[in-house]
């Protein structure tokens, strides 16, 4: 798996954009079709992980990703509390769809960040 393989790198080069489009589609269409934040985030992190197959190099700033992830968690906690508990959802019913899309996006990016951090940490920091 560590040797460079032309076949894998060319194939993954074709598949990469499809990964991104499919992941974003699952995230943004979570409220009309099956799927949602978690599944879309897992697809996006599968993209990061399959990058390891062609180029096993640690060029991702892990510390920054962790900070981003903590900020996203804060937003995930804050958004439903500010929107649902304050009864905004009954007062302004128009805002319901933007709320769903926003929450799905936040959850999706948080899951993508988290799973990539777990995987990269495991691969590069766990020596024999």
């Amino acid at each position: 798996m560590n040797e460079h393989s032309d076949l894998t790198s060319t194939t993954l080069g074709f598949i990469y954009p499809l990964f991104i489009i499919y992941g974003l589609y699952i995230i943004f269409n979570g409220h009309i079709s099956p799927g949602g934040g978690f599944q879309g985030g897992a697809v996006l992190s599968a993209m990061f992980i399959s990058k390891y197959l062609i180029l096993p190099l640690l060029d991702t700033p892990l510390a920054k990703i962790q900070t981003v992830e903590k900020l996203l968690l804060l937003l995930i906690v804050a958004t439903p509390i500010l929107f649902l508990l304050t009864r905004f959802n009954t007062a302004y019913a128009v805002l319901n769809t933007p709320y769903l899309i926003l929450m799905n996006t936040l959850i999706g990016f948080k899951v993508a960040c988290g799973m990539s951090v777990i995987f990269l940490r495991f691969v590069f920091y766990e020596m024999q």
């Binding site: 798996m1 099956p34 599944q39 599968a46 390891y52 995987f119």
Partner: peptide
């Protein structure tokens, strides 16, 4: 249950398979 099926397909057959293969490679 298409939601569960999506999550299972992605996590079970791509993420955990790659993770196990990498773990096996760290074997002596």
């Amino acid at each position: 249950a298409p939601d569960v099926a999506l999550a299972e397909a992605i996590i079970g057959s791509s993420l955990s398979t790659i993770l196990y293969l990498v773990a096996l490679q760290k074997y002596k």
